Each structure stands twice: as C-alpha cells, then as structure tokens.
Amino acid sequence: MTLNADGDDRIADLLAHFGGQSANPVLSFLDAEGLPFSIRCGARWTGESFLLKTLPSGPGAPPGRVPASLLWHHHDESLEDQRSVMLHGTLEQKEGRHEPGAVFRPTAPPVVVGLEPVDVEALFRTFNRRSDAYLERHSLQPPQVDWEALERIIAKVRAEPRTR
C-alpha cells in the first residue's frame, strides 16, 4: 500500500520521536471471539509493513487477516506533553517455523497528535461542519446563546482578584 509519495519516510520519521525501531507500540485488534485485545509488542518497520515479534497464541490469537491498529505514545509523569502516532491497517499471522510472529500493514495515513503543527482554523471548520450535520441529522435547531449574559459573566470573572 502506498500512503503517499513520502509515506515510508514519514512513518520512519514519526517513529523516531518514540525511540525508532526500539519502541514497543500497543497492538489492538478483535480476537477470535470478537473481543477487543491489546498487547505491547516489538515492531520493526520494513518500509512497507511492520514485522511483529510478540503475539498471543491460543484463543487470543486473531484468525487470518484482521483489522488492527498500532499505537506509539508518550506523556510525562503529570500526563501532559502527550504525543502519539496511530496506524490503522491489517494484522496477519506469519506462517512458518523460522519466522514466528505476524505482519501489520498500514492501510491509511498516520494519525498524529502532538508532533505536528495544528491548523486551528481547519479544526474549527471541521467542528462546525460536524455540528451542522449533527443538528440536521437530528432535525434540531442551533441553540440560542444569550451573548450579553455571557459577556456579563466574563466581565465579572475578569474583575475578581486572582488568588493563584
């Protein structure tokens, strides 16, 4: 699968923020019974897919090729400075005695949080579009906002002394 012209390099560059090839992402998928299953695993990027070193055997092992995700994430002790990269794709058990494990193949561009600049205007356009679609889908009118009352509340809060 080609993510885009620089997809391979982009994935490698993003993973560098999490320790590169030595980082252990969280693999998530639905198990053989259809229940969610997550495990931290070793994953090595080959330029097209990830070779996974750790997979459960027995009832937890996914059958055949299944939708899955790989998540690399970081946060500090106070749960701030959060950064993550998630890849959606397929998980497939490798067959053969010499190379146990599985292969994860990305099927969509990476979902990145905290590593790249955010286009706030585009984000709010998306929020607005989704809000409008929700209201229309449920035959609802936008709520009426008493802007004068809101301005009075803001002015009152700003006038209060800060105790911090």
Rank of each mutant, 00 (worst) to 15 (best):
P36V: 13
R40M: 08
W45T: 12
T46K: 06
E48A: 14
S49W: 09
L51N: 04
L52W: 08
P56S: 06
S57Y: 11
G58L: 10
P59N: 02
G60N: 12
G60Y: 14
P62G: 06
V66I: 14
L71V: 14
D76T: 04
E77S: 12
S78T: 14
E80K: 12
E80H: 09
D81A: 15
D81T: 06
R83K: 15
R83E: 06
S84Y: 10
V85W: 09
V85L: 10
V85E: 01
M86E: 15
M86R: 15
L87T: 03
E92L: 07
G96D: 05
G96M: 09
R97N: 01
H98C: 01
P100N: 00
G101H: 01
A102E: 04
P106R: 06
T107P: 01
V111C: 00
V112K: 04
V112L: 05
P117Q: 10
V118E: 05
V118T: 10
D119C: 05
D119I: 12
V120M: 03
E121V: 13
A122I: 00
L123Q: 07
R125F: 03
T126V: 03
T126H: 08
F127M: 12
R129N: 06
R130G: 01
S131C: 11
Y134G: 00
L135C: 04
E136M: 07
S139Q: 13
L140I: 12
Q141I: 02
Q141L: 15
Q141H: 13
P143Q: 06
W147H: 10
E148H: 08
E148F: 05
E148R: 14
E148A: 15
A149P: 02
L150M: 13
R152W: 03
A155W: 02
V157A: 14
V157R: 14
V157D: 01
R158V: 07
R158M: 12
T163C: 00
T163Q: 10
